[in-house]
């Protein structure tokens, strides 16, 4: 994964970068499986490697696929910031419980309740599903609304494809675009 990330940072052909992002996501999914998070791995493989790669390719087709190299002063200041932040973060990890420690505080707050009681209270073998849909239902409701809002936002920003093309100059169509998709969406509900 680190190698893929280095390649993403170095390559200037955006098409290759997007493909590498897909590979990066798949490697991430494999890492999730290793760490027992099968549901998460499933989602990452479908979303990260599938949907988001397709969306990025769509954007590349609409814009451009070449990148200009970053100016040197940017690189130096970025490196300074990154190294500093990284050192601080690694210093922070020194206080963390070691990897896989069953006595870590994270495992003894509510997780015991979920693992021990959920089969009696909810009755589903997959604890992830029962926490997602039952114990933390409000969270999931909120996330669903976020996704809904994001789709509505993309429609508001880009979605004038259904309307007849306007032949005014750029500024005019910009003003018309913001209001018209919302109108059409309101009509469809």
């Amino acid at each position: 994964m680190v190698i893929a990330a280095i390649a993403i940072a170095r390559i200037h052909d955006l098409f290759a970068v997007v493909m590498l992002t897909g590979i990066f996501s798949l490697l991430g999914a494999a890492a999730y499986v290793v760490m027992d998070a099968v549901d998460v791995a499933f989602t990452e493989a479908a979303v990260g490697a599938g949907a988001s790669t397709v969306l990025m390719l769509g954007t590349l087709a609409l814009t451009t696929s070449k990148e200009r190299p970053a100016p040197a002063k940017n690189v130096i200041s970025a490196l300074i910031v990154v190294v500093f932040t990284g050192v601080v973060l690694i210093y922070g990890t020194l206080d963390m419980p070691i990897y896989g420690d069953p006595m870590a505080p994270i495992h003894h707050h509510v997780a015991d309740h979920y693992l021990g009681k959920s089969s009696a209270e909810v009755g589903l073998p997959n604890v992830v599903t029962s926490v997602l849909a039952s114990y933390r239902s409000y969270d999931t409701l909120g996330e669903t609304f976020v996704i809904f809002t994001a789709a509505a936002g993309v429609l508001a920003i880009l979605g004038q494809s259904r309307l007849p093309r306007r032949h005014h100059d750029q500024e005019d169509s910009e003003k018309g675009m913001v209001s018209s998709p919302e109108k059409s969406k309101g009509a469809s509900t």
Partner: peptide
Amino acid sequence: TIFCTFAGR
């Protein structure tokens, strides 16, 4: 929806 707005443009 998101895909089609990207691709339909």
